[in-house]
Amino acid sequence: MPTKDSARLDIRKTYKLYVGGAFPRSESGRSYVVNDAKGKFLANASLASRKDARDAVVAARKAFGGWSARTAYNRGQVLYRIAEVMEGRHDQFSAEVAAAEGLSVAKARPLVDAAIDRWVWYAGWADKLAQVVGSSNPVAGPYFDFSVPEATGVVALLAPQDSSLLGLTSVLAPAIVSGNTAVVVTSFERPIPAITLGEVMATSDVPGGVVNILTGSASEIGPWLASHLDVNAIDLCGVEDPDEARDLEAAAAENLKRVRRPAAEDWLESPGLSRLTQYLELKTVWHPIGV
């Protein structure tokens, strides 16, 4: 029987990766210590290796067919469901973002609000994208000619290093809403909100493999994703060194990946459509009429 003043034992967590709808340890068996902004121990996180990235790409490719074939309306519902489940964990996210980014919980709450609202905002775009980006093209011939946007495939996202939840959401949501599947490398120093987002994904109707979350170093895993021939696009947002970003861009050119270069961003601003349209292919169909 513990006495009244005996301290409860800390539960020192070692988080795992999120790949293919499951939570595996890193294939390498490595982990690293995650501290809060003031240097106090928060948790251990798995340190993903290139082989974890390879497995994640396989999982993402496997999930792509089913996810991109869903109706846009259904994908919108699933994204909205993510927002719902996040709302239920609002306090947890606020505490984690506060610890990771060195803010008070009161300052962190609006960031979590904004992240949740961003999922809702992108959820709304799911079934409106084709109307805005697609077109019916006037052509000089007896054809009904139209262009429709389609998902490009597997998107690798090197998530922002600073904004642990809002930044992550702002790069992830636009990639998956149109039917792509994603392999995310989280912020190295601030991975905890991303890990919790993985737990949200696992419990919110998102099919396994659509979102795969690797905690670890973008410098270590980035080159393997950039040169991977089964990755169709890469967001270099989390790469801070311009030389490194240039090398990744060069590696990505091998199979003509769509590349988004790093740039200073204010995550609280309205995101616009640029990320949403970055990972699309336009399919144009010439359909004979009057025959």
Binding site: R61, S227, H228, L229, V231, A251, E254
Partner: peptide
């Protein structure tokens, strides 16, 4: 080649 190929190839 030193990088991962994809099944498309």
């Amino acid at each position: 080649t030193g990088h991962y190929p994809g099944p498309d190839y």
